[in-house]
Protein backbone atom coordinates (compact mmCIF):
# COMPACT_ATOMS: atom_id res chain seq x y z
CA UNK A 1 0.00 0.00 0.00
CA UNK A 2 2.74 2.40 0.91
CA UNK A 3 5.40 1.00 -1.32
CA UNK A 4 4.32 2.93 -4.34
CA UNK A 5 5.01 6.20 -2.55
CA UNK A 6 8.58 5.23 -1.92
CA UNK A 7 11.46 5.39 -4.29
CA UNK A 8 13.51 2.19 -4.42
CA UNK A 9 16.25 2.39 -1.87
CA UNK A 10 19.15 2.12 -4.20
CA UNK A 11 17.77 4.40 -6.85
CA UNK A 12 17.72 7.37 -4.54
CA UNK A 13 21.42 7.92 -4.38
CA UNK A 14 21.42 10.74 -6.86
CA UNK A 15 22.17 13.35 -4.21
CA UNK A 16 25.52 11.68 -3.62
CA UNK A 17 27.22 11.12 -0.32
CA UNK A 18 28.89 14.45 0.19
CA UNK A 19 25.55 16.15 0.56
CA UNK A 20 26.77 19.69 0.95
CA UNK A 21 24.26 22.43 1.74
CA UNK A 22 23.81 23.26 -1.91
CA UNK A 23 22.71 19.74 -2.74
CA UNK A 24 20.25 19.64 0.13
CA UNK A 25 18.27 22.54 -1.21
CA UNK A 26 17.25 20.32 -4.06
CA UNK A 27 16.06 17.38 -1.97
CA UNK A 28 12.41 16.86 -2.71
CA UNK A 29 9.92 17.07 0.18
CA UNK A 30 6.98 14.78 -0.64
CA UNK A 31 4.88 15.96 2.30
CA UNK A 32 5.11 19.65 1.62
CA UNK A 33 1.83 21.31 2.58
CA UNK A 34 0.34 18.19 4.17
CA UNK A 35 0.35 19.75 7.64
CA UNK A 36 -1.44 22.94 6.54
CA UNK A 37 -4.77 21.47 7.56
CA UNK A 38 -3.60 19.77 10.78
CA UNK A 39 -4.66 21.33 14.05
CA UNK A 40 -1.69 22.21 16.26
CA UNK A 41 -2.89 20.55 19.46
CA UNK A 42 -1.54 17.51 21.33
CA UNK A 43 -2.97 14.29 19.92
CA UNK A 44 -4.20 15.82 16.69
CA UNK A 45 -5.23 13.57 13.81
CA UNK A 46 -2.96 13.43 10.76
CA UNK A 47 -4.10 12.96 7.15
CA UNK A 48 -2.21 9.66 6.78
CA UNK A 49 -1.14 8.15 10.09
CA UNK A 50 1.54 5.44 10.15
CA UNK A 51 2.23 5.18 13.89
CA UNK A 52 -0.28 5.69 16.69
CA UNK A 53 0.24 5.66 20.46
CA UNK A 54 -2.75 5.62 22.82
CA UNK A 55 -2.63 6.12 26.61
CA UNK A 56 0.95 4.88 26.87
CA UNK A 57 2.29 5.09 30.42
CA UNK A 58 5.47 3.87 32.08
CA UNK A 59 6.26 4.26 35.75
CA UNK A 60 9.56 3.82 37.59
CA UNK A 61 8.74 3.42 41.22
CA UNK A 62 6.46 6.31 42.03
CA UNK A 63 7.65 8.40 39.10
CA UNK A 64 5.55 8.52 35.94
CA UNK A 65 8.24 8.72 33.29
CA UNK A 66 5.88 8.59 30.32
CA UNK A 67 2.19 9.40 30.17
CA UNK A 68 1.24 9.97 26.54
CA UNK A 69 -2.47 10.23 25.85
CA UNK A 70 -2.52 10.21 22.06
CA UNK A 71 0.10 10.60 19.37
CA UNK A 72 -0.42 10.23 15.63
CA UNK A 73 2.60 10.30 13.34
CA UNK A 74 2.22 11.38 9.70
CA UNK A 75 3.47 8.96 7.07
CA UNK A 76 6.44 10.14 5.04
CA UNK A 77 7.15 13.18 7.18
CA UNK A 78 10.00 14.12 9.51
CA UNK A 79 8.59 14.43 13.00
CA UNK A 80 10.76 15.88 15.75
CA UNK A 81 10.32 14.90 19.39
CA UNK A 82 11.69 17.61 21.64
CA UNK A 83 11.59 18.43 25.32
CA UNK A 84 13.79 19.30 28.27
CA UNK A 85 16.11 16.72 29.86
CA UNK A 86 14.17 14.08 31.70
CA UNK A 87 10.99 14.73 29.72
CA UNK A 88 10.76 11.02 28.92
CA UNK A 89 11.64 11.23 25.24
CA UNK A 90 14.08 8.34 25.20
CA UNK A 91 11.85 6.26 27.45
CA UNK A 92 8.97 6.91 25.06
CA UNK A 93 11.23 5.85 22.19
CA UNK A 94 12.08 2.66 24.04
CA UNK A 95 8.37 1.96 24.52
CA UNK A 96 7.59 2.52 20.84
CA UNK A 97 10.42 0.25 19.69
CA UNK A 98 9.85 -2.63 22.07
CA UNK A 99 13.01 -2.04 24.13
CA UNK A 100 10.80 -1.40 27.15
CA UNK A 101 7.22 -2.39 27.83
CA UNK A 102 4.58 0.17 28.80
CA UNK A 103 2.61 -0.40 31.97
CA UNK A 104 -0.47 0.26 29.88
CA UNK A 105 -1.40 1.63 26.47
CA UNK A 106 -1.46 0.66 22.82
CA UNK A 107 0.85 1.29 19.91
CA UNK A 108 -0.12 0.65 16.31
CA UNK A 109 2.09 0.54 13.26
CA UNK A 110 0.28 0.73 9.91
CA UNK A 111 -2.96 0.07 11.73
CA UNK A 112 -1.68 -3.16 13.28
CA UNK A 113 -1.10 -3.43 17.01
CA UNK A 114 2.54 -3.89 18.01
CA UNK A 115 1.83 -4.13 21.74
CA UNK A 116 4.28 -6.53 23.34
CA UNK A 117 6.00 -7.31 20.04
CA UNK A 118 9.66 -8.05 20.73
CA UNK A 119 12.07 -5.37 19.58
CA UNK A 120 13.82 -7.62 17.08
CA UNK A 121 10.54 -8.37 15.31
CA UNK A 122 9.83 -4.71 14.64
CA UNK A 123 12.65 -4.54 12.13
CA UNK A 124 10.78 -7.07 10.02
CA UNK A 125 7.67 -4.90 10.34
CA UNK A 126 9.55 -1.98 8.88
CA UNK A 127 10.57 -0.01 11.98
CA UNK A 128 14.21 0.51 12.88
CA UNK A 129 15.87 2.71 15.47
CA UNK A 130 19.22 4.19 16.37
CA UNK A 131 20.50 5.00 19.83
CA UNK A 132 21.42 8.13 21.74
CA UNK A 133 24.78 6.61 22.67
CA UNK A 134 25.82 5.38 19.28
CA UNK A 135 26.03 1.63 19.09
CA UNK A 136 28.62 1.06 16.42
CA UNK A 137 29.85 -2.52 16.76
CA UNK A 138 33.46 -1.71 17.56
CA UNK A 139 35.25 -4.93 16.65
CA UNK A 140 33.36 -5.47 13.41
CA UNK A 141 34.45 -3.74 10.24
CA UNK A 142 32.26 -0.99 8.87
CA UNK A 143 31.26 -3.31 6.04
CA UNK A 144 30.26 -6.06 8.49
CA UNK A 145 28.29 -3.50 10.46
CA UNK A 146 26.37 -2.73 7.30
CA UNK A 147 25.85 -6.35 6.27
CA UNK A 148 24.40 -7.11 9.67
CA UNK A 149 21.37 -5.00 8.81
CA UNK A 150 20.43 -7.12 5.81
CA UNK A 151 17.22 -9.10 5.94
CA UNK A 152 16.56 -12.57 4.54
CA UNK A 153 20.10 -13.86 4.90
CA UNK A 154 19.70 -17.64 5.15
CA UNK A 155 23.26 -17.87 6.48
CA UNK A 156 22.00 -16.43 9.75
CA UNK A 157 20.39 -19.77 10.41
CA UNK A 158 22.69 -22.09 12.33
CA UNK A 159 22.36 -25.15 10.11
CA UNK A 160 22.42 -23.26 6.84
CA UNK A 161 25.48 -21.37 8.02
CA UNK A 162 27.39 -24.66 7.98
CA UNK A 163 26.97 -24.99 4.21
CA UNK A 164 28.51 -22.02 2.45
CA UNK A 165 26.61 -22.54 -0.79
CA UNK A 166 23.35 -21.87 1.06
CA UNK A 167 24.26 -18.28 1.74
CA UNK A 168 27.08 -17.04 -0.49
CA UNK A 169 24.70 -15.86 -3.24
CA UNK A 170 22.66 -13.74 -0.86
CA UNK A 171 25.88 -12.56 0.76
CA UNK A 172 27.08 -11.20 -2.58
CA UNK A 173 23.84 -9.23 -2.96
CA UNK A 174 24.13 -7.94 0.59
CA UNK A 175 27.72 -6.97 -0.03
CA UNK A 176 26.77 -4.97 -3.11
CA UNK A 177 23.88 -3.27 -1.28
CA UNK A 178 26.14 -2.41 1.66
CA UNK A 179 28.83 -0.96 -0.57
CA UNK A 180 26.30 1.12 -2.46
CA UNK A 181 24.92 2.54 0.77
CA UNK A 182 28.43 3.25 1.99
CA UNK A 183 29.11 5.10 -1.24
CA UNK A 184 25.98 7.16 -0.71
CA UNK A 185 27.19 8.07 2.78
CA UNK A 186 30.64 8.78 1.38
CA UNK A 187 32.28 6.10 3.49
CA UNK A 188 33.55 3.65 0.92
CA UNK A 189 37.14 4.22 1.94
CA UNK A 190 36.36 3.08 5.47
CA UNK A 191 34.64 -0.17 4.59
CA UNK A 192 37.40 -2.36 6.00
CA UNK A 193 38.17 -0.31 9.11
CA UNK A 194 37.00 -1.49 12.50
CA UNK A 195 33.98 0.60 13.47
CA UNK A 196 35.62 1.27 16.82
CA UNK A 197 38.27 3.41 15.13
CA UNK A 198 35.76 5.88 13.69
CA UNK A 199 34.98 9.31 15.09
CA UNK A 200 31.70 9.98 16.86
CA UNK A 201 30.09 11.56 13.81
CA UNK A 202 31.23 8.76 11.52
CA UNK A 203 29.71 6.25 13.89
CA UNK A 204 26.41 8.10 13.68
CA UNK A 205 26.63 7.84 9.91
CA UNK A 206 27.40 4.12 10.07
CA UNK A 207 24.52 3.57 12.42
CA UNK A 208 22.11 5.41 10.14
CA UNK A 209 23.41 3.68 7.01
CA UNK A 210 23.21 0.33 8.77
CA UNK A 211 19.60 0.89 9.71
CA UNK A 212 18.79 1.55 6.05
CA UNK A 213 20.02 -1.95 5.19
CA UNK A 214 16.76 -3.23 6.68
CA UNK A 215 14.87 -1.07 4.15
CA UNK A 216 12.68 0.45 6.86
CA UNK A 217 9.40 2.31 6.53
CA UNK A 218 9.88 4.12 9.81
CA UNK A 219 13.30 5.31 10.96
CA UNK A 220 13.55 6.36 14.60
CA UNK A 221 16.65 8.41 15.36
CA UNK A 222 17.53 9.10 18.99
CA UNK A 223 19.54 12.34 19.02
CA UNK A 224 21.23 11.79 15.66
CA UNK A 225 23.21 15.04 15.90
CA UNK A 226 24.48 14.69 19.47
CA UNK A 227 28.25 14.97 19.61
CA UNK A 228 28.66 15.38 15.88
CA UNK A 229 30.97 18.13 14.65
CA UNK A 230 29.33 20.99 12.68
CA UNK A 231 30.85 19.98 9.35
CA UNK A 232 29.31 16.54 9.55
CA UNK A 233 26.02 17.88 10.91
CA UNK A 234 25.08 19.38 7.55
CA UNK A 235 25.84 16.10 5.85
CA UNK A 236 23.72 14.21 8.39
CA UNK A 237 20.81 16.62 7.92
CA UNK A 238 21.04 16.04 4.20
CA UNK A 239 20.83 12.30 4.71
CA UNK A 240 17.79 12.66 6.94
CA UNK A 241 16.03 14.72 4.29
CA UNK A 242 17.04 12.12 1.76
CA UNK A 243 15.18 9.50 3.80
CA UNK A 244 12.03 11.58 3.52
CA UNK A 245 12.57 12.03 -0.19
CA UNK A 246 12.60 8.23 -0.45
CA UNK A 247 9.20 8.15 1.19
CA UNK A 248 10.33 6.94 4.59
CA UNK A 249 8.90 8.24 7.84
CA UNK A 250 11.45 9.74 10.22
CA UNK A 251 10.91 10.35 13.92
CA UNK A 252 13.81 11.84 15.80
CA UNK A 253 14.66 13.13 19.25
CA UNK A 254 16.65 16.34 19.30
CA UNK A 255 17.72 19.12 21.63
CA UNK A 256 18.97 21.67 19.16
CA UNK A 257 16.05 23.77 17.97
CA UNK A 258 18.02 25.03 14.94
CA UNK A 259 18.25 21.51 13.59
CA UNK A 260 14.62 20.88 14.36
CA UNK A 261 13.57 23.98 12.48
CA UNK A 262 15.75 23.14 9.54
CA UNK A 263 14.55 19.67 8.78
CA UNK A 264 11.35 18.77 10.61
CA UNK A 265 7.85 19.02 9.20
CA UNK A 266 6.13 18.58 12.52
CA UNK A 267 7.26 18.99 16.12
CA UNK A 268 6.00 17.16 19.19
CA UNK A 269 6.97 18.62 22.57
CA UNK A 270 7.21 16.48 25.69
CA UNK A 271 7.61 17.63 29.27
CA UNK A 272 7.42 15.50 32.41
CA UNK A 273 6.33 12.52 30.39
CA UNK A 274 3.38 14.16 28.69
CA UNK A 275 2.94 15.70 25.27
CA UNK A 276 2.33 19.36 25.91
CA UNK A 277 2.28 20.71 22.37
CA UNK A 278 2.34 19.76 18.72
CA UNK A 279 2.73 21.94 15.66
CA UNK A 280 4.88 23.12 12.82
CA UNK A 281 8.39 24.23 13.82
CA UNK A 282 7.45 27.90 13.49
CA UNK A 283 4.30 27.56 15.55
CA UNK A 284 6.18 25.67 18.27
CA UNK A 285 8.87 28.32 18.53
CA UNK A 286 6.19 30.88 19.26
CA UNK A 287 4.30 28.69 21.72
CA UNK A 288 4.41 30.14 25.25
CA UNK A 289 3.73 26.79 26.96
CA UNK A 290 6.78 25.30 25.29
CA UNK A 291 9.00 28.20 26.26
CA UNK A 292 7.83 27.85 29.86
CA UNK A 293 8.45 24.14 29.87
CA UNK A 294 12.02 24.67 28.77
CA UNK A 295 13.00 27.79 30.65
CA UNK A 296 10.89 26.97 33.68
CA UNK A 297 12.46 23.63 34.28
CA UNK A 298 15.95 23.91 32.82
CA UNK A 299 17.74 27.21 32.49
CA UNK A 300 20.76 25.55 31.03
CA UNK A 301 18.76 23.87 28.31
CA UNK A 302 20.46 23.57 24.99
CA UNK A 303 17.28 24.69 23.29
CA UNK A 304 17.92 28.07 21.75
CA UNK A 305 14.93 30.06 20.52
CA UNK A 306 17.09 32.93 19.36
CA UNK A 307 15.21 35.86 17.93
CA UNK A 308 11.95 33.95 17.75
CA UNK A 309 11.16 33.93 21.45
Amino acid sequence: MTDDKRAPILGATAGGGGAGAAVQENIHNPVEGVFDTVEAVPGSKKPDTILTAQNVTRRFGGLKAVDVETLHVQRGAITALIGPNGAGKTTFFNLLTGFDNPDEGHVELNGVSIDGVASHKLAAKGMVRTFQLTKALSRLTVLDNMKLGAKNQPGENFLKALVSSMWTDREAEVDAQARELLARFNMTHMADEFAGTLSGGQRKLVEMARSLMTDPEVVMLDEPMAGVNPALTQSLLGHVKQLRAEGRTVIFVEHDMDMVREISDWVVVMAEGEIIAEGTPDAISANQAVVDAYLGSHHDSELDFGEDS
Binding site: A123, V128, K135, A136, L148, S211
Partner: peptide
Protein backbone atom coordinates in the same frame (compact mmCIF):
# COMPACT_ATOMS: atom_id res chain seq x y z
CA UNK B 1 29.19 -17.13 8.08
CA UNK B 2 26.47 -14.53 8.65
CA UNK B 3 25.50 -16.53 11.75
CA UNK B 4 28.89 -15.76 13.27
CA UNK B 5 28.51 -12.12 12.31
CA UNK B 6 25.33 -11.91 14.34
CA UNK B 7 27.10 -13.51 17.32
CA UNK B 8 29.87 -10.96 17.16
CA UNK B 9 27.33 -8.17 16.87
CA UNK B 10 25.62 -9.43 20.02
CA UNK B 11 28.96 -9.49 21.79
CA UNK B 12 29.59 -5.88 20.82
CA UNK B 13 26.10 -4.60 21.55
CA UNK B 14 23.06 -6.70 22.08
CA UNK B 15 20.59 -3.83 21.71
CA UNK B 16 22.02 -2.81 18.36
CA UNK B 17 21.63 -6.37 17.09
CA UNK B 18 18.04 -6.43 18.31
CA UNK B 19 17.24 -3.11 16.67
CA UNK B 20 18.40 -4.62 13.39
CA UNK B 21 15.99 -7.48 13.73
Amino acid sequence: SPWGRVLKAIREDEDAARSLG
